[in-house]
Amino acid sequence: MNTAADVDQIKANWPGGILILEEKISFTKEVSIMVTKTAQGDLVTWPIAENVHQNHILKTSTVPATITPDLDQTIQAIAKTLADELDLRGVLGIELFVNEESNQVWVNELAPRPHNSGHYTIEACNVSQFEGHIRSIVGLPIPAITLVGPALMANLLGDELLTARQAFINHPAWHFHDYGKADVKPGRKMGHITVVGEEAQADLEEFLAGLQ
Rank of each mutant, 00 (worst) to 15 (best):
F27W: 11
N155C: 06
N99H: 09
S61I: 02
A182H: 13
A5I: 09
V31P: 01
M190H: 05
A151Q: 04
A154Y: 03
I25L: 14
D70I: 12
N55C: 08
C125A: 09
H119V: 08
N2S: 14
K185I: 12
P15E: 10
G149R: 04
F168E: 15
Y179Q: 10
S32C: 13
E123K: 13
T62K: 12
K11W: 13
F97M: 08
R165D: 12
I67N: 02
R89S: 15
I122W: 05
L19V: 11
E95Y: 01
Q166C: 06
F27P: 03
S102Q: 14
S136F: 02
A151R: 02
V31C: 07
S61T: 08
H175G: 10
Q76V: 01
N99V: 04
P47N: 09
N116V: 05
A12I: 03
N126P: 11
F168M: 15
E95M: 04
E50D: 08
E205T: 13
T62W: 04
P143A: 12
K185H: 10
R165N: 13
M34G: 09
I18S: 13
L140D: 12
P64V: 04
G187A: 07
T146N: 10
D8M: 13
V184P: 06
I10S: 12
E198Q: 14
M34A: 09
P143G: 08
A79F: 02
D8F: 12
I10M: 15
I134C: 05
L71D: 00
L96V: 07
A12T: 07
K80A: 14
A5E: 15
V44Y: 01
V7Q: 12
H171Q: 11
H119G: 10
T38C: 04
D183G: 05
A49R: 00
Q212G: 15
E198S: 13
Y120R: 07
A164Y: 01
E160F: 04
C125M: 07
L110S: 01
K37V: 00
Q201N: 14
E131R: 10
E198T: 14
R89C: 09
F207A: 05
M190F: 08
E198I: 09
P141Q: 06
